[in-house]
Design a protein around this nucleic acid. Structure first.
Length: 257
DNA sequence: ATGTCAAGAAAATCTTGA
């Protein structure tokens, strides 16, 4: 079973890219972020045509997450991240597919800092840490995946010194990520490739992709029941070179059935 | 500070977020 995550950066604007990638790589389950579309504008028909049933949490202009599956309609288990009734941003959706609970998230970017956006990011992170404790107590295998907007370590960024004051790399944010990991999650890419340079994002600016000036900010976190089933992981790096493509690269794992 | 994108409001460019 192949599970992928892809910050599509506009599900309608990038629809040809999304459909091409689905057809070429055939993931079984896909978590999408940054739909940038309200619920009624989600391209359900085209995605059905491609062989996937989906659930989604849309929002006009920004954010938005979806879960696609080739195994029938995902069984939704959570919509929205608990812990703040005032939070109306569409950033978390969760489903159980073939016995695996899959949380699809789009963690706030947090820039600029200091300011309310950075505070929101840290608060969202705390809510995720709290909520993930509940997921860890579950008996079944669990995956949390998506765009975390966190560069976990120095090897995950082309020039660490340039990013020390960015909300993706600030100490507070890396500490929050480590706090989450320390609760009992395993970073799938680093489990299989502890030291390789693997990027999942390349800025549109300054030919970042051509210069391999990337970041690793899209992650797969596995609970202890899931770890022994991890067979493979990687990125579809070439997709970043396509016309009208997202600034993110699809990331995937393969797990034993 | 810059640079690149897309969507939305509004009416062709500007603003916003990333």
């Amino acid at each position: 079973m192949k599970i992928a995550t892809y910050n599509v950066n506009g599900v309608n604007g990038r629809l040809p890219v999304l459909l091409r990638w689905l057809a070429e790589t055939k993931p079984d389950v896909v978590c999408l972020q940054e739909l940038k579309a309200p619920d009624e504008k989600f391209p359900e028909a085209a995605i059905l045509e491609a062989g996937y049933q989906a659930i989604w949490q849309g929002q006009k202009s920004w954010n938005g997450v979806a879960i696609l599956s080739r195994f029938g309609k995902p069984e939704e288990t959570q919509r929205g991240l608990p812990g703040d009734d005032e939070d109306i941003q569409s950033r978390y959706l969760e489903a159980t597919i073939n016995g695996i609970t899959i949380g699809c998230l789009y963690l706030p970017n947090g820039n600029p800092l200091p300011g309310p956006k950075f505070d929101y990011k840290l608060a969202w992170f705390e809510r995720l840490i709290t909520y993930s404790g509940k997921l860890l107590k579950a008996e079944n295998p669990v995956i949390i995946t998506g765009d975390f907007n966190v560069i976990p370590t120095e090897i995950d960024v082309y020039k660490p010194e340039r990013w020390v004051n960015d909300a993706l790399f600030r100490t507070e944010v890396r500490e929050a990520f480590n706090k989450l990991i320390d609760k009992g999650w395993t970073d799938a890419i680093r489990k299989l490739y502890p030291e390789e340079v693997i990027y999942t994002f390349f800025d549109y600016f300054r030919n970042a992709y051509g210069r391999n000036a990337g970041l690793r900010i899209d992650h797969f976190l596995l609970n202890p029941q899931m770890v022994p089933r991890l067979n493979n992981a990687g990125t579809d790096h070439n997709v970043r070179g396509w016309e009208k493509t997202s600034d993110h690269v699809p990331v995937w794992i393969e797990v034993a059935d």
